[in-house]
Simulated assay, not measured.
Amino acid sequence: MDILLQEDSIISPLGFSTSENIKAIKAGVSGLHFHENSRFLNGGFYAGIVDKSLLAEHFSKIGDSSKFTKLEQMMLLSIQSVLNNNQLDLSETGLVISSTKGNVDLLGDSRNFSKDRASLISLAKIIQDFFGFKLQPIIVSNACVSGGLAVAIAKRFIQVGKFTDAIVVAGDLVTDFVTSGFQSFQALSATPCKPFSKNRDGISLGEAAAAILVSRRERKANNISLVGDATVNDANHISGPSRTGEGLYKSIQLALKEAKLAALEIDYLSAHGTATLFNDEMEAIAFNRAGLEHVPVNSFKGFYGHTLGASALIETILTKHSLLNNELYPSLNFEELGVSKPINIIDKLEKRELKIALKTASGFGGCNLAMILKKAF
């Protein structure tokens, strides 16, 4: 049974649709800008932040922005865009929601909203009620693999017959809670992040939302199938990745096994690529162990920053469109390779025939994810 990745939408500083986001990426436009804040080193930090006024303007077409938080508006807009282009019976459609922190900003300043709304259960209920989904929402919150893991979970529920269609939505914000946490690790970059580069010095944060329709029902001639996925926890450290890349390596091997593919059949690799010293090194080691050192690879973090629970879904959507468009998108801000093992970084936009791609993600607590996407035509 083919599980298809169909209609999608990305809401980010680069645009309020997937097409706007891809147009910005092809033009080399980054959503990262400096945001002044005296509480932080260097007087502020680089991040990709969605403009509130522009968001409210777009959201006013579907609801009253004063009744919904910023995160809720972003996630609801992304789902609405997917629903606009598909006739779905929401009484039978699954809803899978991914976020690492949800409305955590309400714990500091609840404004017109109850602090209870900070819970992920409340976020799920708001999304469910807004559209009228009847099935109980599934909540996925497993650090920074969450957005991709949500797609994999939707796939598995469809395979066992729980539903035929599922909407997967993911979102997270740049908040004081998150930025303070990464500053405590001394992991915030003083410049827009530089994944896999020799002079990288940490992450840039970002906020975004995305949604995608996962289905076993063909609706269009051109489809992308999710043919393999796996997640392995290396149990190395609460915030540090395995030095041998063990969890990511095993995830890749298991995903390839399910897909019945060999590493040499992978045409493109979308990495997690946070631009921290340890993450990028770990990924390079895992890719080499898996025999993927020659596969063109990029990170989208230079465009978006790290959008936490939304990152793996956004990057899965972009990987899908790379396959459909036969385009390799550059790893923005890359300079000189700064990892100990060779990898083939994409440094400019390139047209190339693509059939199969691998998307990886890793996160705190030792979680790792690998997903294999394949053209279904």
Rank of each mutant, 00 (worst) to 15 (best):
V297M: 14
L76W: 08
S141G: 02
D8K: 13
S78Y: 12
S98G: 02
F278T: 06
L349R: 13
T244C: 01
F157N: 12
R289V: 03
L256K: 02
V168W: 11
A27H: 10
K257P: 01
G228L: 11
I343R: 02
I139L: 14
I238G: 07
A170P: 08
D165H: 15
S239I: 14
I343W: 06
N86G: 01
G31I: 12
I372M: 07
S362R: 08
T93H: 08
L332P: 07
Q159A: 14
D105A: 09
F16L: 09
Q186F: 11
K301A: 06
N333Q: 04
I238S: 07
A166E: 05
Q6T: 05
K220M: 08
S91Y: 09
A118G: 14
A262L: 05
L264W: 00
S99L: 04
A208H: 08
I22K: 06
S225V: 01
K341S: 12
A187V: 02
C367P: 03
I238T: 04
P296T: 05
L71V: 09
L337I: 09
F130N: 08
V227A: 06
L349H: 12
S81W: 03
H237S: 09
G206A: 01
G63Q: 06
N21P: 03
D129R: 12
M371A: 13
S38W: 00
I356H: 10
A357L: 13
H321K: 09
K374R: 15
R156D: 15
D176K: 01
Y46D: 00
N288F: 00
D51K: 08
I153E: 01
I121M: 11
S197A: 14
